[in-house]
Simulated assay, not measured.
Amino acid sequence: MEQLNRILQTPLIVFGDISISLVQIFTVLAFLVIGVMLVLWSSSFLRRRLGKRGVDVNVVQLVSRAWLILGLVIVVISTLDLLSVPLAAFAFVSGAVAIGFGFGAQNIINNFISGWILMWERPIKIGDFLELGEVRGTVESIDTRSTRIRRVDGVHLLIPNSQLLETTVTNWTLVDDLVRTAIRVGVAYGSDVRLTESLMYRAAKEHPDVLETPPTLVIFDNFGDSSLEFELNVWLHSTAERGLRLIRSDLRFSIDELFREHGIVIAFPQRDVHLDGQLRIVRDRGVTAGQSD
């Protein structure tokens, strides 16, 4: 036992006045494992408790992330204290390392800071429906490096947090889920325009998802090349593009059915071509007369 104790107490690393023995290394490793596991467990426990109390998921994520980072910092500082490493010396070394690391990991640091800005200022929240270029989907999680979005086709995308702050993002549900959608339809020339207007109002009024306030609006938009063009504008609550597409589909079914019942014809592109046959006959006669001469 004395020999084993002597081996464990033998300094393995000597740095100035600081010496680190084998028993210190074992102690630090055990402390790190237990400390990290405790921090992870407490962060998960905090997330579950706040979730059961009905706290907003964005607040839950912000609090749990902050506690996780704070706990890891405490574990690291306590580990240095166990090794008797003065923080002043460590600060000098860590500063030099941080400068070198910063030049090589600018994108990672940028995304990390952007992630905290997103969670703190909350311009984008979990559950929001976003449109970023050609990408449309619902935010499922905001992590420290990237944001996970589920597209309308079910595919998951990981978008760097810095991209969400540096580019134009359309947030359909930033303030509320009140959106307006429009349906355009063209009817044949000669149709009763007032009847067409009333039937479109009726189709919107009979749909359960169309709101009364703001009011529905039917616009006689234009005299088109092949049709009289109308536009139906309705307001509704929707948090995803799929909901809007389904409602527009229902309204088109209703409009088509009502138009058929009242004899309103939905126009299709057409072009009339008029041929002047008389001019052709005159020319042919002229050619014949010239030949006979």
Rank of each mutant, 00 (worst) to 15 (best):
R202E: 15
R260S: 15
F259M: 08
H207D: 15
V273K: 05
R271S: 13
R260L: 15
I247G: 05
H207L: 12
T216K: 00
L211N: 03
P269S: 15
N222G: 11
E206K: 03
D221T: 05
L244E: 14
F220P: 01
A203R: 00
V210K: 01
D221H: 05
L211I: 06
D221W: 02
V265P: 01
K205L: 13
F230N: 00
D209S: 12
R248I: 05
E229M: 10
V273I: 15
H262Y: 13
E212L: 08
A204T: 06
W235C: 09
L217S: 07
R252K: 10
V265L: 13
R260H: 12
L275W: 06
E229T: 12
N222L: 10
P214M: 09
H274Y: 12
D209H: 01
L246F: 04
Q270E: 13
V234H: 00
F230V: 08
L232C: 06
E257Y: 02
D221K: 02
D209M: 05
L236F: 10
K205R: 07
H274S: 13
D209G: 07
I255Y: 10
I255S: 06
L244C: 12
D272K: 07
D209L: 09
F259D: 04
A240Q: 05
P269N: 14
E241Q: 11
F220H: 07
H237C: 09
L228I: 15
A204F: 06
F259W: 04
R252V: 12
L232D: 03
Q270Y: 10
I266Y: 02
S238P: 01
H207S: 14
S227G: 01
S226T: 11
L275M: 06
E231F: 06
E206G: 07
R271T: 14
G224E: 05
P269T: 14
T239S: 15
L232H: 01
E261I: 09
S226D: 09
F223Y: 11
T239D: 14
M200R: 01
R245I: 13
V218T: 06
H237K: 04
L258P: 03
D225L: 12
F268D: 07
F230T: 06
D256R: 09
E206A: 13
I219K: 03
P215F: 06
H207C: 12
A204D: 08
D272F: 08
D256P: 00
F223C: 01
L251M: 08
T216A: 12
L211Y: 07
A204H: 03
L275P: 01
F253S: 12
R271I: 14
I264D: 07
S238D: 05
D209C: 04
V234W: 00
A204G: 11
D256I: 09
T213K: 08
F253W: 03
D209F: 01
P269C: 15
R271M: 14
V210I: 15
L232S: 05
R260K: 15
M200Y: 04
E206P: 00
T213P: 00
L236S: 09
A204Y: 03
H262Q: 13
G243L: 10
R271Q: 13
T216C: 07
G263P: 08
W235R: 02
R245Q: 15
E261G: 07
G243C: 12
D272P: 02
H274R: 09
R252P: 04
R271N: 11
A203W: 04
E206N: 09
S226N: 08
S227F: 00
E229A: 14
A203Q: 03
K205P: 00
